[in-house]
Computed example of a mutant assay.
Amino acid sequence: MSVLIAVTALPCGLLIGLLLGALGGGGSILAVPALVYVAGQSPHTATAGALVVVAVGAVTGLACHAAAGRVRWSAGAAFGTLGTAGTYLGSRWSAAAEPAVLMAAFAGLMCAVAVALLLRSLRERRAAQAARAGVASEPLPPLPGGAVPLRSRPVRVTATASAVGLLTGFFGVGGGFVVVPALTLVLGMEMPVAVGTSLLVIVINSGTALATRAGTGVLDWPLLAGVAACTALGSYAGNRLAARLPPQVLSAAFASLVAVLAVALAATAVPRL
């Protein structure tokens, strides 16, 4: 690993970790471009290496969120396990499938998720303002972490978990930008709890994808070790940031991030259709 690559790639690791720790997702989207355009790796190698970086950052963030009681272990483990089949298939298809059409469709999905989260964030903010003013407002759906059990919506949960696993395997991403909205919108978790629980899902998905890709390429372990170490530091800082911000701010920030990523993906994928 050259000095130039270290100077440019390691700060990317800090940013990836910061996003993972604070928002539970988005960092993995940055990991692949960083390894391709900054470190000069091939896309196939970068998608595998990104899984290592994201997994390390997710483990660090998971430990911090768990210590603060913001992880629902049973729900996260079940969600991650349900997505392993999709992760396996996605990893197998990644070398043969044309990603442009899928990326364009996924960009549209991310836009829809961003709108849904922004609307939910605005509703929560209005409810909080009404509560402070002593005005009755329309009750919100139950939000205590994991209040809606997975077994109450088996089809939606299984489909969402499988889709997240497919994305993880195919694109080499952790899928947190989909897991967090799924945990908030489908299972009714509060944003901080969804962020912490999503990191458990990312660890499971990333581990499955790495096991499936084992032996398919040579990874630059010194580079990955340096980026992963910076990602761990960034994840710790992101966790501290998440603890200081109210859920409404986190939700709005995450929705904005998803929208920006959707536009970036669309700008890249649509011209290639």
Rank of each mutant, 00 (worst) to 15 (best):
T47W: 00
R126Q: 12
G169D: 02
G234V: 08
L14M: 14
V113I: 15
L15H: 13
A159S: 11
S256A: 15
L199I: 05
S162P: 05
N239E: 04
G25P: 06
P142C: 04
L273G: 09
A58I: 11
A252Y: 06
A209C: 11
A77E: 00
G215Y: 01
L199M: 08
G238F: 02
P99T: 13
G146L: 10
L185V: 05
A131E: 11
S251C: 14
S206W: 05
P222R: 04
L140H: 07
G146P: 12
V173L: 13
T168F: 02
A127F: 08
M103F: 01
A96G: 11
G21P: 15
V263L: 13
S137A: 15
G196W: 00
A104Q: 09
G83L: 08
A75G: 07
G196P: 01
A228I: 02
S74A: 15
V54R: 01
P246W: 00
L219H: 13
T158D: 05
G17K: 05
A46N: 05
P43M: 12
G21H: 05
V52E: 01
G86C: 13
L4C: 06
F106C: 00
R126P: 07
E190R: 14
A67K: 05
A237Q: 14
A228H: 08
V101W: 13
T212P: 00
T8P: 00
F106G: 02
S2I: 04
L210G: 04
A163L: 15
Q248D: 10
G234R: 03
T197K: 10
E98N: 13
A253Q: 06
V56A: 14
G86W: 11
V203K: 00
V38C: 01
T8E: 07
L117N: 00
A114D: 03
G226A: 07
A264V: 14
A266F: 14
N239V: 11
I29D: 06
L51N: 05
G176D: 11
A116W: 02
A252G: 07
A78Q: 08
G145K: 14
R132G: 13
L19E: 10
A31K: 08
L261A: 15
G234A: 09
V164C: 11
S2W: 12
A266M: 10
L245G: 08
G90C: 03
L82T: 06
G69H: 04
F106V: 00
A225G: 14
V186K: 09
G90M: 03
S152M: 07
T216N: 10
V180R: 03
C64I: 06
V173S: 03
A34S: 14
I29H: 05
G207D: 02
A31C: 03
L150Y: 12
A63H: 02
T231R: 09
A163S: 09
V270F: 10
G24L: 05
G40I: 09
A182G: 07
V56M: 12
L19N: 08
A9I: 10
T158F: 06
P181Y: 12
V179W: 00
L19T: 04
A66F: 12
V38W: 06
V227D: 09
L167F: 12
V195T: 14
G169K: 11
V178G: 02
A48C: 12
A48S: 08
A159D: 10
G86L: 07
V218C: 00
L4F: 09
G83N: 07
P141A: 13
A147K: 07
